[in-house]
Design a protein around this nucleic acid. Structure first.
Lengths: 337, 337
DNA sequence: TTGTAGGCGTTATCAG
DNA sequence: CTGATAACGCCTACAA
């Protein structure tokens, strides 16, 4: 039994008789032989691994994305090299370089990355899919959630419920998603003939703690908002927490809305109105796209896709602003009140 | 400039003059040269990568663990190969085999894995750290949260608050953590001279949906519990959601407690009493242990560590069972009630 | 201090 | 259809 035959048995590439192939496979099993992936990578120049670059943020959103990526990647026998928790350019640079030669492609999810950071630190012939990143030039495939449209719909939803004092809790500066959501909020206000007051746009950072701080600040205003639109669900969770601590009822006193529609949203008290896409689906979609690019040796036309979002109305906005004592629905949810 | 010199410049291993080393490094930078990791792995037999095997469960717990692992691994220039979402033995087997030769060690977090599955599918000389797994034999290092002690303390906390009808929402069968927590709950009841009624131990699966179902079931009982101890925080979130939907007030009508103390626990409505360890710390601890084992070529004495947990009392249990209208503290949190 | 050569375990290309 | 052999890019003795 020669070494070349074994290779053919595993690869199914060259010509080999089925009987010998089986024999190789069974004896390999018995000897616990597994082809050395480093040697294989060395000569084929394929690592069968995709890299995932995550930002400093955390929460349910990113773990869901990873689940989606992992599931899609495994179907095609790909592995996942994960590198998380960087936001400043220097850390991203280091992570990119470290991944060089270890991956066949990259999914980048750092919303404030610059295209030239990628170009300068990652082999140019390898495909990259940008997920929720600012898109500059057309050098890379990219997938974005419809941040503008989602924030726009959500704001309209609040306006249609009679709200006129709608506060917006911002995300991190420089975060592309966050800025787009802010734009959508403003656009809806303007469409309804309202002014965008800077004092209704309060600071946040996509974390629960940031949401809590933002809500506390809003509660100290002499005119309080009748609705708070948090730029992501983690922030909304913090807002709900601060409102509860201050004795404000949601949605009777203040409506609260989020963005992303993370799985836990529907289990919050009250269930959180939110807007978003299937998060695992998002990860899977990006992965499929990347794997296709790898298969096509990155010679395809790059494209930027914007995924439509779905608005899910739950109890946290289930009261009309002009009925402060609460709608029937919210009363049913709080019969003890 | 010879190839050997370049190697020495990067490794800092053999003798090399500092001036030439600098010269190599700067020209490498200019040429964007990066040593090929596959070739390096092939000869050094080190991948500089650690594998992480996660179960089918999701939620904030696992993403926090990964953050902790990643941070600790990066400090020593290690990469992370993540494989998630498997629970049945066949999938674990496949994942283990796929990681062979791609990692220098493994962190396993599949609570119902069997030691012989590991032995049979992973190179025996490579170190493995079991995180929250059932420990059989002493073949591997292992780290466990003090599930028994934590559940015991929590149950005592509820008993001390006057509760006598304490329901327990179980985790998945075969899940070691879950079973240990159940044991701790039962032990505390017995210490207080109470019987463990099987009807107070309801089915759950460590998910929000499972918690919701469990709470619904409990609400249909003709004697309702005065406290619900959920075997993890995700379950507790589902319990809170079902109770709210049914109009039960927490903690006035029912106290609710969880396990793990995930970051979101303190932002829930009401803030959730829970018990656990620092989750990122847990991941970092496991990683440090694994990296030490790698450095010592796995020749150290294996040990099993049980990490002490901390009980954090929050509003969800802040009422005495014999004061159904609520304590001062909970009244302050709900001035509108 | 630097250059040279053998080998790590594959795949791929030829002969047989 | 199977066996031999030259890369793949690096590390590490050893020679210069």
């Amino acid at each position: 039994m020669s070494i070349g035959t074994v290779s053919r048995a595993f690869n199914g590439n060259g010509p080999i008789r089925e009987a010998t192939r089986q024999r190789v496979l069974t004896t390999a099993e018995a000897l616990r032989y597994v082809p050395n992936s480093a040697a294989r990578t060395l000569i084929t120049r394929r690592t069968m691994t995709i890299g995932v670059l995550l930002p400093d943020l955390y929460g349910e959103f990113f773990s869901e994305v990873i689940r989606g990526i992992d599931t899609a990647a495994r179907r095609l026998q790909y592995h996942l090299l994960v590198s998380s928790s960087h936001n400043d350019t220097e850390e991203i640079r280091a992570a990119l370089r470290a991944m060089r030669g270890r991956v066949d492609g990259l999914i980048v999810m750092s919303p404030n990355i610059e295209a030239r950071t990628l170009e300068a630190n990652f082999p140019p012939h390898l495909p990259i899919v940008l997920l929720n990143c600012r898109v500059e030039g057309g050098a890379y495939d990219s997938i974005n959630v419809d941040n503008f449209g989602g924030a726009h719909s959500m704001t309209r939803h609040l306006l249609d419920a009679g709200h006129r004092r709608i506060a917006f809790v911002r995300g991190p500066r420089e975060n592309y998603d966050a800025e787009e959501r802010l734009r959508g909020y403003r656009a809806a206000l303007i469409e309804y003939g309202l002014e965008c007051c800077p004092e209704w746009e309060v600071t946040g950072d996509f974390t629960e703690a940031g949401g809590e701080r933002a809500a506390s600040e809003l509660l100290n205003r002499h005119t309080r908002p009748s609705a708070v639109f948090a730029s992501n669900d983690s922030t909304a969770i913090g807002v709900l927490s601060a409102l509860r601590a201050a004795g404000s009822r949601v949605p009777e006193d203040v409506a609260v809305a989020g963005f992303d529609d993370i799985p836990v949203a529907r289990y919050l008290t009250p269930p959180l109105t939110s807007v978003g896409v299937s998060i695992t689906g998002l990860g899977g979609f990006a992965t499929d796209k990347l794997l296709r690019a790898i298969a096509e040796r990155n010679e395809h036309a790059k494209q930027n896709e914007i995924l439509p979002v779905r608005l899910t109305v739950r109890d946290s906005t289930a009261a009309r602003a002009d009925e402060p004592q609460g709608s029937l629905r919210s009363r049913l949810s709080h019969p003890a009140a």
